[in-house]
């Protein structure tokens, strides 16, 4: 098993979950697997942290939760992005991009202005 390399920055988990769920309804484990696959296991997430995050987003109305069956015919709780969640995703994405831009400006500056 490869060693995960990057610790998750606080508050980023929500954005990752929102983005992942934008592909369609998933249960918690599927969300994790998706993140693992797309990051090639480079991201360290304590898996339990996913559930308070999912429930909190459900409470905020970003996610709708429903019980359904997996392809292996097991009962699981599926989360789906709500309209509000979609809006939230859009605004978080633009905030993230801005943040990355600003941090990037500082980190790529060649020398301090005198």
């Amino acid at each position: 098993m490869p060693t995960p390399e990057i610790d998750l920055v606080r508050g980023t988990l929500d954005l990752l979950i929102l983005k992942t769920l934008s592909w369609g309804p998933m249960h918690g484990l599927a969300v994790l697997r998706w993140i693992e696959q797309t990051t090639r296991d480079q991201l360290q997430i304590e898996e339990g942290a996913l559930y308070p995050a999912l429930h909190r987003m459900e409470e905020k109305g970003w996610l709708d939760a429903e019980w359904g069956y997996t392809e292996k015919n097991r009962k699981a709780k599926f989360y789906r992005l709500s309209a509000r969640g979609r809006k939230q995703l859009a605004s978080e994405l633009s905030r993230w991009a801005k943040y990355a831009d600003v941090v990037g400006l500082v980190l790529t500056a060649e020398r301090a202005a005198t």
Partner: peptide, 16 residues
Amino acid sequence: RFGDYDAYRREARTID
């Protein structure tokens, strides 16, 4: 991998 099961469960429980 899951981490502190009881703590996460309690947290989710409060939100519920």
